[in-house]
Amino acid sequence: MKRDLTCVACPLGCQITVEYEGTEVLSVTGNTCKRGDAYARTEIVNPTRNIASTVKVVGGAHPVVPVKTSAPIPKTMIFDCMKEINKACVNAPVSIGQVIIPDVLGTGVDIVATNID
């Protein structure tokens, strides 16, 4: 099997072609860096994405503070992860990198703050 992908690892957006059998990747071509190779392989087997959103803050200067996944999560879990993020609430002060939700949905990935408040 052959699939053409646009790499999302960086803003370059390389066009990558992956040849695979089932979940076994045979070749990756068109990428211009190692990140592209890794992206193409995960995309075939278990596509993952980083997501960014906001979490309610109590007692801060702003109503919300931005957060992100500390590592990519499976694409299929994005909306479930959003539900967890929207349930969360944090007390000010908040620091960059502060874990807001540890191990979200058992993925081993944390939801961390990306700004101060």
Binding site: C10, P11, N50, A52, S53, T54, P66, V67, K68, T114, N115
Partner: peptide, 15 residues
């Protein structure tokens, strides 16, 4: 708040 900043300058992906 999305990521994609800093790959060229810092070599890592930041929001």
């Amino acid at each position: 708040i999305h990521s994609g900043f800093g790959l060229t300058y810092f070599g890592e992906e930041l929001s």
